[in-house]
Design a binder for these strands. Sequence first.
DNA 1: GTGAAAGCGCTAACAG
DNA 2: CTGTTAGCGCTTTCAC
Lengths: 351, 351
Amino acid sequence: MTVTIKDVAKVAKVAPSTVSRVISNSPRISERTKEKVREAMKELGYHPNFNARSLANQSTKTIGIIMPNSANKTFQNPFFPEVIRGISTKAHQLEYGLYLSTGQSDEEIIEEVQHMVQGKRVDGIILLYSKVNDKVLKYLHEQDFPFTLIGRPYDESLFNITYVNNDNFKAAKTVTEYLLLLGHKQIAFVGGNLDNVVTIDHMQGYNQALRNAGIEPRDEYIVFHEELQEGGQEAVIDLMSLTERPTALIVADDIMTFGVMRMLSEMEVRVPEDISIISFNNVMISELSAPPMTTVDINIYSLGYEAANLLIDKILHPSVEPKKMIVPHKMIKRETCRRLVEKGGAKRESM
Amino acid sequence: MTVTIKDVAKVAKVAPSTVSRVISNSPRISERTKEKVREAMKELGYHPNFNARSLANQSTKTIGIIMPNSANKTFQNPFFPEVIRGISTKAHQLEYGLYLSTGQSDEEIIEEVQHMVQGKRVDGIILLYSKVNDKVLKYLHEQDFPFTLIGRPYDESLFNITYVNNDNFKAAKTVTEYLLLLGHKQIAFVGGNLDNVVTIDHMQGYNQALRNAGIEPRDEYIVFHEELQEGGQEAVIDLMSLTERPTALIVADDIMTFGVMRMLSEMEVRVPEDISIISFNNVMISELSAPPMTTVDINIYSLGYEAANLLIDKILHPSVEPKKMIVPHKMIKRETCRRLVEKGGAKRESM
DNA sequence: GTGAAAGCGCTAACAG
DNA sequence: CTGTTAGCGCTTTCAC
């Protein structure tokens, strides 16, 4: 009942192999028979069977996407739809399909990845997160399976892989310098999970900027929290309980910033009058906070798009050297940062 | 170089078919040979080839997920990661994989769906959106291909399909009644795209509640906007330009509400003092608005989970009748609604 | 330019 | 309980 290549062959009065050649548009087939075959295909409503092709070809034309484990709240970050949109665009252009991981825990995920690669379910993999000592990364590298990482490898032994990242160190440094320029000296850093490489890079950029300005980073001003919203709220409590409250905050993620701002407003600390905030990512909703947040646009869409691009390249040319790519970031000034008002409180200049 | 069933067979000194039986854990194989075979598999590092299985089985153990076209901003709604998390959980339990659509336009999507089903790339499909006159829906139904819809069919001829939905009519009605109870009479409705069935249901619930209260719905109080954030903002401008401004707003979607609140605060209209707002979905961030929004929790995760559940059921038992399922919703009262203050402005009671 | 036939890796019907 | 064999639907040498 399913119409196969053979049926088409019969109707077109040619051999199955000829039909196959027409499908792949082989130049060694005459236009006349091509026409004949194509007609037969239309007539019968023929569609190539994907699994048969994959089996014969040893290629699936599909990309595996590994998300962080879905139990984690980060999963709901609008970051992901946006990277996927980027990946999706490139994939679609080159007629690749997307296969999604479903694991809820790290063990489930590594297992799944193994199934994907050993079972030849995908031609390559994109890792949507990068954390310290990641088993998945290590496994993929050992297997020499085509993959790209969004983020950067942490382990030295894994430096030589294909990845696309932002210059997160630089971004954090710039952002810190900006706050410094606005007169802030008590700048706190609210990071995400310390296992994420991006958190480490942010922190180092922050530290560097402070040191360059002759300010020694203070431990009490550096806090990390796993969960996005709750984390943001807890961080605020910790920070605002200090005798010397920070006058500015650098927050790891826009969603976390929502939590931070929420908590601050509950405590009746005004943004930016009492405290300045700057964060990272610039997801869709970040312009909708009250007040709209100043943040670093990391070009999420491009991260996805380029990751797909590099991956497909790797799939097609397995032997070429791994490529690294840095997607530019850009600070988006909105309304959560302001020049620090002097003790006396004379001028109030907003930036 | 890839290790196949034959290699295992050789090492274990059995026939390939026996190995196959061990894989599917057939009860007709003695424990002894099972052990022997399993050992050989470990030893060789054997992993079943997915495409070969799919081909022989006529089953892929994967579910296709059709998102709205990714060009659309709704794509970035945190709604999607959350439904997918639900789908993912069920799928993982039953060892199904997830295959994602990548189309950027409606044409691309319908094409993709056809490839998926005709090419036998997936065993079933979940539609993540439901809109009026949807070609995809129609096609799937014509083909009698297993699928479930998240939302409900609009076209009568398609009533008899499997779907999971909320009672959106009821939810909108309740919400309207709630505002009515708070003394509001000038209640506006800010809907999403009128092509979405959910918008229609919301509107009808709203209309019904008003009529029941003896209030004739006014055209000026009903606006629709496609885009989430911008839409929210435009809607506010339209509504606030009326001579008789509404005192309460029912907004289609939490993200849109962020846009609405942003615009309102720019216009220095205070929420909830000057205007009450209630919206739908209760996505993760909705509790982080300032003030935190009152909204209807539609249980997004369950929508996904149940959709996967019904779909897999359908895949396994194709002949059983289509099932419909209504996921309960629940109003989450937070801080954007308040009793209408009488003209004189005596009491101020918050709810 | 086109056909015949082997094979991708696995499953399942039929024997025994 | 286990082996033999014939496919699943397509690609790809190797002939002609």
